[in-house]
């Protein structure tokens, strides 16, 4: 699947410097292969269907949550509302179902709300540029606060909601879920489809190209009649929708609503984007790269878990590795060469 995404990226001969792209992507693959080999050598049971399934499942959640982060990074923004929308969706869905909405309707409501929060975010923050991350943080707080007010009206638990999760939703993203009888949860397929579609859209549609244009030079993009407002609003809406989706799928995974499920995604989405090689300053990178970043991050974590590292130690090791990983292919040129 990754190779398909990447191929569409490379296939777009004009896309961006093919050589550079090849380089960063092949290094990404090497890194991934190296981690897999290390895992196979060091951790018994690392190479097993179970482990592959769990890696892909966790990667799918992170991957879906990182869609919005990647798109935002491409225009030089960061979306810090992602964890809050994930958490909000994760508790709003069950409480809507408790309130009597049929599950599909409730899901659509949550998705629409997530998209709306994202749209607000984009519409309000496109003027702020570098400061946009604080706007998204503020909106995230506001959204999750509002959701919790709603869910806790008439109950004591604001942050956790218990409701029976329908079997099909659980099957979508539970560890032992089945995809048409095949032994892996459908969420992996959902991620794969979204990744391929997104990779293709980014390189073959006017919208995709205008996103890169806005990220590269706002004024030059404006001269081509590209509306920066539209681009920001759309990508933030996508980010909101994807976060809401991730939150709902996480409900199937865990079985109960908990507002804090999104918290780890605050900086892991950023880390995945960065490890993939998308510049946080905008204009260069893509979702294919993020897919690689997500896989590297997930496999690395799985390896560290296999080696018996505690959560804090895992976090420290991942942190330590980010700089060297990024340094391999995303060093900025020396200032002497930028004059």
């Amino acid at each position: 699947m990754i190779s398909t995404v990447l191929n569409t990226e490379i296939g777009a001969a004009g896309g961006s410097s093919a050589l550079r792209k090849h380089k960063s992507i092949s290094i990404g693959f090497c890194l991934l292969a190296g981690l897999l080999i290390l895992g196979a050598l060091l951790v018994p049971g690392f190479v097993s269907p179970q482990n592959a399934r769990s890696i892909l499942l966790l990667a799918a959640f992170l991957g879906l949550a990182s869609v919005g982060q990647t798109l935002c990074a491409l225009v030089g923004a960061l979306d810090l509302s992602i964890p809050y929308i994930i958490g909000g969706a994760n508790i709003l869905l069950p409480s809507l179902m408790v309130a009597g909405l049929p599950a599909p309707v409730a899901m659509i409501v949550v998705l629409v709300l997530g998209t709306l929060v994202g749209a607000c975010n984009g519409a309000l923050s496109f003027r702020l540029q570098g400061q946009a991350l604080i706007m998204s943080l503020g909106l995230g707080f506001a959204a999750v606060g509002a959701v919790q007010i709603y869910t806790s009206l008439g109950s004591q638990f604001g942050g956790t909601v218990f409701a029976p999760v329908p079997g099909w939703l659980r099957n979508l993203s539970a560890f032992n879920g089945k995809f048409f009888g095949l032994p892996f949860p459908p969420v992996i397929v959902i991620w794969a489809v979204i990744a391929v579609a997104l990779g293709w859209i980014m390189h073959n549609t006017w919208f995709g190209r205008s996103l890169y244009a806005v990220g590269g030079s706002r004024t030059a993009a404006a001269r081509l009649g590209i509306s920066e407002f539209k681009v920001w609003t759309v990508i933030h809406s996508v980010s909101g929708a994807m976060s809401a989706l991730t939150g709902m799928l996480l409900l199937g995974f865990s079985g109960g609503g908990f507002v804090g499920v999104g918290d780890p995604y605050l900086f892991t989405t950023v880390a995945a984007v960065v490890i993939g090689g998308t510049s946080l300053l905008g204009g260069a990178g893509g979702y294919g790269a993020t897919v690689l970043g997500v896989l590297v991050l997930t496999v690395l974590t799985s390896l560290l878990v296999g080696l018996g590292l505690s959560f804090p130690a895992q976090q420290a090791v991942v942190g330590l590795l980010i700089v060297p990983m990024v340094a391999i292919y995303a060093r900025s040129p020396h200032i002497r060469n930028q004059i």
């Binding site: 001969a13 004009g14 896309g15 961006s16 410097s17 006017w206 190209r209 890169y212 244009a213 990220g215 590269g216 030079s217 004024t219 030059a220 993009a221 404006a222 001269r223 081509l224 009649g225 510049s279 204009g283 260069a284």
Partner: peptide, 21 residues
């Protein structure tokens, strides 16, 4: 520099972007 080029993009993209539409 200000209202023309897209610095991170290729030469091809920089020329072709004007006709995509």
């Amino acid at each position: 520099k200000r209202e023309g080029i897209f610095p991170q993009q290729s030469i091809f993209e920089n020329l072709a972007i004007g006709v995509y539409r």
